[in-house]
Design a protein around this nucleic acid. Structure first.
Length: 425
RNA sequence: GGAGGAGUGGCUGAGCGGUUGAAAGCGGCGGUCUUGAAAACCGUUGACCGGUUACCCCGGUCCGGGGGUUCGAAUCCCUCCUCCUCCGCCA
């Protein structure tokens, strides 16, 4: 959420930012006119309230001195009715404005390349060699099946398509990946481990920016209006909503595993093979609360921390800086990490590392007290996947497959998985 | 699920219809003292909105959320939420 005052004073900047993100700016004009109307009403009611307060003081004094105040009391009743009426109008305007404001995206950082779609993303670098095999390769789905790691049909019987059931060694490998990543971030980097709730209230889900825009992509429990989290970013960023942190606490860095639930409405038929797009998956998420001056440095280290997972696993990947049109609603700047999957010679997105600046902090009212001025200011929040498992597993299988149909377990995972090779049944 | 108690500023905690935006303490900030620090002492210290834009001033709002009573509500009433205690249920 952008502050109303900021929008008012920087309307053209906001308009341009929205346009660069490919979002209609009609709403901006509505906001500006509602804002004007609102301020006029506020000025009016405040004048009346000032009058009421003055007279109320007089009445109090008269009463104390034992005087007669009935005529003043009678005239005040009329004034109070008028104030109430104007205030009701103000409330309606404020609700309308709030609704519109929830739909105004964050403005891209000035360094973000301008473009309308993924083709304008900037390739930062490619790490590792493009793996080639001297034999006929299997894709990850064939390998999953041959190695009996995932039973898609059973998952389908239980919950429907897109809910994979990991079995036996597959379940163990999945757990190994999660533990490996959590240990890396919490023991070798400065992240505090969190095990969060997997559901969140509407308010929490709004603060991270998933709502209202992505409501149709969320699973919701209708009786309680709780949302199944699409990422641990939601609970992690919700931890400090409404709180005031002290400057000395910053930066706060958290890492959490969670299952992630996404309806992926409308995306059937596209990349839906195997594990590439599913409704429930596992992910380790990194979230930081930082001082505004440090947020862009923290974005770089966040990305490096996410990259480390891929490096340790010996996978080939590339780093993209997203262009304005590909940037998510709440992000000011974002890097994507894409891992190389040799079977289809595809790059698979396994992480997005974003700086939201104060966008989420404003929605969630997360502040800190500045040491120098003693004043309150919004923190900056960042998050990045570190990482999501399904595509990571796909890349591992395709990269480490052997001519005999076995798959070598990456060295870093062996202590977690317990064996050095995955063999077909 | 049933019964009772409580939610006040960054924190603890008074106030229970009108000089209370809110005592006191802690914390924070500034200063005195000190080679420096601590301690002590003195001073200072809420947030948000609007006008104005120089955060200087003026006005307004805010005592868990929402609604009501009243000329006037932190204070009375209703409702919701959260926490605590007891009972029940489940693990």
């Amino acid at each position: 959420m952008l502050p109303l005052k900021y929008i008012r004073q920087n309307a053209e900047l906001v308009r341009q930012g929205m346009a660069h993100k490919g979002i209609e700016t009609e709403r901006l004009d509505q906001i500006l006119s509602l804002d004007e109307e609102l301020r006029a009403k506020i000025a009016h009611t405040e004048t009346l309230k000032a009058q009421r307060n003055r007279v109320t003081q007089t009445i109090a004094q008269l009463k104390r001195e034992g005087g007669e105040a009935q005529d003043k009391i009678t005239s005040m009743a009329e004034l109070s009715r008028e104030i109430k009426e104007i205030d009701q109008g103000i409330q309606i305007l404020q609700e309308q404005l709030h609704t519109h404001l929830l739909w105004v995206p964050n403005i891209p950082h000035s360094t973000v390349p301008v473009g309308s779609d993924a083709s304008a993303n900037r390739l930062v670098s490619t790490e590792g060699e493009l793996v080639t095999h001297s034999f006929a390769v299997q894709d990850h789905l064939e390998l999953l099946t041959a190695l009996q790691l995932v039973d898609f049909e059973a998952g389908g019987r239980i919950a429907g398509r897109g809910f994979p059931l990991y079995t036996g060694k597959g379940a163990r490998l999945e757990r190994a990946l999660i533990n490996f990543m959590l240990d890396l971030h919490t023991q070798e980097r400065n992240y505090t481990e969190i095990f969060p709730p997997f559901v969140a209230t509407r308010q929490t889900t709004e603060l991270t920016g998933q709502l209202p825009k992505l409501e149709e992509d969320m699973y919701v429990t209708t009786v309680d209006d709780l949302f199944l989290i699409p990422t641990a970013e939601v609970p992690l960023t919700g931890i400090y909503q409404g709180q005031v942190l002290s400057e000395g606490d910053l930066p706060l860095r958290y890492a959490a595993y969670s299952a992630c639930f996404r309806r992926e409405a409308g995306s059937y038929g596209k990349e839906t093979r195997g594990l590439l797009r599913v409704h429930q998956f596992n992910k380790v998420e990194l979230v930081k609360y930082v001082h505004p001056d440090a947020s862009y440095d923290e974005l770089e280290t966040l990305r490096v921390d996410a990259e480390e997972v891929l490096k340790r696993l010996g996978l080939t990947y590339r780093i993209l800086e997203l262009c304005t049109g590909d940037l998510s609603f709440a992000a000011a700047k974002c890097y994507d990490l894409e891992v190389y999957a040799p079977a289809g010679e595809q790059w698979l997105e396994v992480s997005s590392c974003s700086n939201y600046e104060a966008f989420q902090a404003r929605r969630g009212n997360i502040k800190f007290r500045r040491k120098d001025t003693g004043k309150l200011d919004y923190v900056h929040t960042l998050n990045g996947s570190g990482l999501a498992t399904p595509r990571l597993l796909a890349a591992i299988l395709e990269t480490y497959q052997q001519a005999d149909g076995t798959v070598v377990v990456p060295e870093a995972l062996v202590p977690y998985y317990g064996e050095e090779t995955l063999k077909p049944a």
